[in-house]
Amino acid sequence: MIPAAFDYYRPNDVKGVIALLNEHGDDARVMAGGHSLIPMMKLRMAEVPHLIDLQDVVALKGIAIGGGRITLGALVTQHELIDHDGLAQTAPILRETARQIADPQVRYMGTVGGNVANGDPGNDMPGLMQCLNADFTLVGPDGERTVAARDFYEAAYMTAREDDEILVGVSFDAPKGGQAYEKQKRKIGDYATAAAAVVLTKENGTCTSASIAMTNLSDIPVFSQDASDALIGTSVEDNAIRAAVAAMLKDIDPVEDNRGPVAFKQHAASIILTRAIKSAWDRA
């Protein structure tokens, strides 16, 4: 577990980062918290001759809440998500999700930007961002652009981000109604066997909007429009939940691994989604 040699850079603004990416092309990678990248380098699964540490890029830090919109800088840590009272008020699902990621040591270092940019299907934030219908802001040599989270993921470790772009932040409307993130994992520090993010609204006992996304059940995070639709207009009774689960199962595509065979993962996904819907509905 010894990485290959690399050159280390620590620019203090986005421009400096982009310039380095431009200069070294494929051979350069940015590092945020390092808790996905460094293990890959130590396993020599990622070779990074030029490592650009983002920690001094102050512009990428900070949490902003205003006008019904929430913006998270790419360098906001998972710990800060848990610690932030404003977020706990406006979007409690962030804290609930972050608390189910890894362990405190990892969360002190791991960032929102790294988690969503990584492209690992096991990461929890991408699923959450599908559910929240977030926008990702990217900056490259040609300036800034925005990509919807739901359009960002192409395949495992393949995203809409170009090699010379970095992700500067994530923004989304403060979610309304009941919210829940449920995750089954084998142990602390494990990626999901199955996880579900649910946000829904309730008016007079009827579900008026719903958004459902799943983690680690496909090579990309899965937003399920059909599962969401199955709840709208219902009173989220058992039949409606069953319909949502059935729709979700059509959208996921789990593979067998040490967490278990496909049939088990489908079953776990069903149970986890059922629990997430029930708990979001209770909270709505």
Binding site: Q184, R186, T193, R259, G260, P261, A263, F264, H267, A268
Partner: peptide
């Protein structure tokens, strides 16, 4: 582990 217990339950028809 989780999936093996699940499989035991599944094989016994408990699902």
């Amino acid at each position: 582990d989780h999936w093996r217990i699940w499989k035991t339950a599944n094989d016994l028809g408990l699902h």
